[in-house]
Structures are given as C-alpha cells and as structure tokens.
C-alpha cells in the first residue's frame, strides 16, 4: 500500500471505501472522528469537514455519513489487528497507539474497580490522530535552541493541533543525532501517551535519533526521576507539562545539570502566566527559550522565539 494510503488499513471496509473515494491524502489529514450514530468528521489541512457517503468533504455536518456501530466495531478490530486485548493497559489510559505511531483515543463506558479503571466497554467514540513525522521541521528553531554548543532549556507553547509534538519530536531527533550547531547528545524521553515515539507493542514508530532512550506510558514526574537515576541523559524531553509534580521533577532535572525540552498548551506566554504552576517556572526563569506556535497559515507555524525574559529574539514566518 502507498504511504499516502497506509492509514486506510485502520478502518472497516465501508469507512475505508468512503475515505478512498474522498481522495484525502495522509500527509494533510490530522484527525478522523467516529462517533456512533453521528456524522463522520475529519480534520484536514487545519479545518473540520464532514465526509458524505460519496466521499465528498462538506462543511455541513448534517450531510455527513452517519457512523454505525458496525463501522465502529470493524474499525476497532482493524486498528488493533483484531487483538484489542493486547492493548489492555493502554486502553485503561483511554488510548491505544498503533503501527505508524498514530494514536487512537477511545471513549465509552468505564469499568471501575477499587477506585481504579479496569477497562472500557461499549466503545462508541473514536478519535484517530494521525502522526506526522516531519524531518527538518525543527531546522528553523534549532539555531535558537542551541546556544554556543549547548542545548537551552526550552518550552514550546502551542494551542492544540498546532504541531508542538511534531516539533518536539524533530528537535529530539536532531539533538540526539547531532547537527552543525552541536554534537549529538544522550536524550531521555518520557512519552506518557506514546505520542512522541509512537511506541506500538514496544516498538518505536518514529525516529527519535540514535542516542535517545524512551520511557513509554510513564507519568512525567516519575519518568524524569527514573531517567536521571538510570540512563544518564544529557537532555530530557517531556510533552505537556502542567502539574505540581511535573514542576517538582523539573526542578530536580535542572539542578542535576540536564537540559530540558518541554511543551505546554497555550496561545502565548501570557496564557502560560495565567497558570500558577507554569507562571512560577516563568518567574524563576527556568526556561531559556520559548517557542510559540500558531495555526495561522498552517499547523506548526512558528510565531516567535523568545528568550528567558520573554523578549522576542526571532519573529514568526
């Protein structure tokens, strides 16, 4: 199957037909949402569309093809290779990662036991987020992230679906492999939701570089401490920081001499300042670089690069 059609293997035969008729290409497709008895929706080139039964993209959800329970069941079977049981642990976290590093969010009836999630039943909502490894997307910001041969503590700030994980992934790869700006570094990645490395059944689906170690499906705070204790990283990378435990672990990372790459949700530094825990990190000038992303012309557009004081040192484009 061509690269552009590889994502089709995740869907039941009827949904596959509709997607084939639509002619959408994988590179520009970000998300496919399937909800029982609701229209089939996709995020394509940064916009939301409904897909009709003929495969036409429309801005009118009412005209979209209604996803049936059979479609959901068939898609779940295809996504999991008919082996949903093999993804038991991941399902408890509400998602599974499939070959190619794509992440499938699941929602349905949660089964609790002794206060812990035991599993999900009657899965009626799927969110298939396609992973796009874009090699070279960090080229523009790398000169600012590496200063005099040393990696700066960097925070990537971006709204959802604007490419912060894609950018982080390429930064990790280039720092690990080495570049004209600095020799290769040992990078430790805490991949809490398998989005960065896209591990599927223990195998990394994305290229994170030759000197990268990955802790998959591990909470950020514990993961950072584990990496510090056992993998001697020179750089640690985490996605979506925001909790108090994350802040405490970050403190340990910084004071151990490791460099830190992290991301956070937000539209701007002002947004970050409104969140008490992140505001504290800003006030303490923990981060030396801030990369602000937006979704103006396309996802992953770099709006600005700021220094530790929040002053812009590189404009967008």
């Amino acid at each position: 199957m061509e690269r552009r059609e590889q994502y089709l293997q995740f869907f039941s035969s009827h949904i596959r037909e509709i997607l084939q008729k639509s002619g959408v290409c994988q590179e520009k497709l970000q998300e496919i949402r399937m909800r029982a008895e609701r229209p089939l929706l996709i995020w394509y080139e940064g916009k939301e569309y409904a897909l009709t039964e003929d495969g036409n993209l429309t801005g009118e959800p009412d005209r979209g093809y209604r996803v049936s329970r059979e479609d959901l069941r068939g898609t779940l079977e295809c996504i999991s290779g008919y082996s949903l049981y093999a993804f038991d642990e991941e399902m408890k976290q509400g998602f599974i990662t499939v070959s190619g590093g794509h992440r499938v969010g699941l929602a349905g009836k949660i089964i609790m036991e002794d206060g812990k999630i035991r599993g999900i039943r009657h899965i009626s909502f799927l969110n298939i987020r396609l992973s796009h490894q874009i090699r070279g997307c960090a080229d523009r910001v790398l000169p600012w992230v590496i200063d005099q041969g040393e990696v700066c503590h960097t925070l990537i700030v971006s709204p959802p679906r604007c490419g912060k994980t894609t950018l982080l992934r390429d930064l990790i790869r280039q720092i690990s492999d080495g570049s004209v700006y600095a020799a290769g570094r040992t990078v430790g990645v805490v991949d809490e939701r398998s989005e960065i490395g896209g591990s599927c059944l223990g195998i990394l689906q994305n290229d994170l570089g030759i000197r990268t170690d990955v802790l998959d499906c591990c909470t950020k705070a514990e993961g950072m401490m584990m990496l510090l204790r056992s993998m001697a990283p020179q750089v640690i990378a985490v996605d979506e920081i925001g909790s108090e435990r994350d802040s405490q672990a970050i403190g340990s990372v910084i004071h151990c001499g490791c460099r830190l790459l992290a991301t956070a949700h937000g539209n701007s530094l002002e947004d970050i300042r409104r969140r008490p825990l992140l505001a504290q990190l800003l006030d303490e000038q923990v981060f030396e670089r801030y990369i602000i992303l937006g979704n103006g012309i396309r996802p992953g557009e770099v709006w600005s690069v700021c220094d530790r004081y929040g002053e812009e040192i590189q404009g967008g484009g």
Partner: peptide, 10 residues
Amino acid sequence: AFCNQDTVMQ
C-alpha cells in the same frame, strides 16, 4: 472468544 471488544469479559 478470540475477538471481543469487551476486553474485560475476554
């Protein structure tokens, strides 16, 4: 038994 969406009941 081999392919059940209800993994709790598998």
